[in-house]
């Protein structure tokens, strides 16, 4: 699946390229379905069945069940689609940022504010 081509490395950053898009297709397709309230409710009512319907693999399903964003990205998830899954659990972007950086939400927010001061 790898092309052998040298990829640009940006620390802490996953570029959503063809390799990621291939790996994550089922996961992202499920997240895309969450534009509909009916689908969001169907997911909450039967997460296992809903993931199976979209053909998520075990890694993807575990990441979704754990609500672990870094694991979802490792499994091919794309930020724009994953955000819709976050929405189901009322996670805002600072919640998601804090989780990924291993910070408290307050510390993450403080970091954002600090970026404006320098």
């Amino acid at each position: 699946m790898t092309t052998g081509k040298q990829k640009r490395v940006i620390p802490g950053t996953t570029i959503f390229d063809g390799d990621q898009a291939r790996k994550g297709y089922a996961l992202n397709k499920m997240c895309y379905s969450f534009n509909s309230e009916e689908n969001r409710q169907a997911f909450l009512a039967d997460r296992d069945g809903y993931c199976a319907k979209f053909g998520l693999n075990e890694q993807q399903k575990k990441a979704v069940f754990d609500l672990n964003v870094l694991d979802m990205i490792a499994a091919g998830g794309n930020a724009y689609f994953l955000a819709k899954l976050g929405g189901i659990y009322k996670l805002d972007m600072q919640d998601i940022g804090a989780q990924q950086t291993g910070m408290t939400k307050e510390a993450f927010q403080a970091k954002l504010i600090a970026a404006g001061k320098n």
């Binding site: 802490g12 950053t13 964003v69 870094l70 998601i96 990924q100 950086t101 970026a115």
Partner: peptide, 8 residues
């Protein structure tokens, strides 16, 4: 940047 360890 919304995603990854470099989020924020």
């Amino acid at each position: 940047q919304l995603d990854g360890q470099r989020a924020g």
